[in-house]
Design a protein around this nucleic acid. Sequence first.
DNA 1: GTCTATAAGAAGATAGAC
DNA 2: GTCTATCTTCTTATAGAC
Lengths: 203, 203
Amino acid sequence: MDTKKKILDVALTLFSEKGYGNVYVGQIAEGVGIKAPSLYKHYKSKKDIFEAILEEMRNRYNKEASRLNMTGNDFLIDSKLYNNISEDELVKMGIGLFSFFLHDEYECKFRKMLTIEQFSNEELAELFSNQYFNEPIKYQTGLLQLLIMQGCMKNEDASVMALQFFAPIYLLMTVCDREPQREVEALQILEKHIRQFNRMYKE
Amino acid sequence: MDTKKKILDVALTLFSEKGYGNVYVGQIAEGVGIKAPSLYKHYKSKKDIFEAILEEMRNRYNKEASRLNMTGNDFLIDSKLYNNISEDELVKMGIGLFSFFLHDEYECKFRKMLTIEQFSNEELAELFSNQYFNEPIKYQTGLLQLLIMQGCMKNEDASVMALQFFAPIYLLMTVCDREPQREVEALQILEKHIRQFNRMYKE
DNA sequence: GTCTATAAGAAGATAGAC
DNA sequence: GTCTATCTTCTTATAGAC
């Protein structure tokens, strides 16, 4: 019922599907259920709507920087300090991360919008890299370092291990963003990847 | 001097930077050094220019499907049948693939255009997946299978190994597409990745 | 806050001279 | 094949009634 918020939702959906330049204010208005001129009572321009989405994105990112890394990992956080992580737990963590990326509505639309707009805006480029490279690698590195210290994992470079753990998840996610029908296939490969990762690195 | 060809070049450059919808025929014409109406003596519409680029892309892909996989690997193809692959050769192969993706002008512009347009066109989505997932994984899998048969590598699932070898290269490439200044950093991580990959999987 | 009417300008495309 | 002039349509945005 909050029109101002609904405009952002509709605009984000359209921007994530077509990109900013291919979306017309009339389409946004139509999705909201009003006429185009009425939009201008809420936002002063089309660019202003885009900026508001960016602002929401920044806020989410700052408030929940680690949220996406934690997804499905809470059990791990709790348990990791006192026992070895099982292979099944590692699988659950990887699948959880993958599924969150792929199915969380907000995450998914943001990512697609960033994907389309990343080359036209340096701030978006940086935001993208933070969310899908810097932060996940940082988090996973910390986790793997812990597992190494516990003696669960071989004493190899944890940041490289994090890259080798995370990059396949990311690559399979991009495939499913383009071709959603490949999710089952992707999940099977993903599980094999994690089990093999564990087999190779476990001490 | 071939105007028709130059139009495609300029258009591809602009499409790869801004996306189809944010490029105007006047900009293409300006890049070519003519006025917008003159474009229509060569192509019947803006969409027609885009289609011509796609056609060129399809032709390149069909004719040189394995080219990108082979880059820097010829030495390997020659030698792989009779001796073990050295870690340095593996590093050279990974860096070669990464550098080709990142610096080949045509490859780079195509990839960026595909990145921007992938969600608005199923054919582009499929082309992207073929070029940056299906084909590289297929090629690397074959290579790793060979190394396993030779007894150079552990007898693990070669397709999973291919994913674990290739995905970090791909992820680092996407980071550098967005933030070219991170290439040195990426190359350092990449080398560590490959050496660690080799250490874990070598027999 | 939403509407209709409309301004103002941009963008794709055509006509016709050279 | 390139140009200028022009058409048409689309798109953003504003004005002003309700």
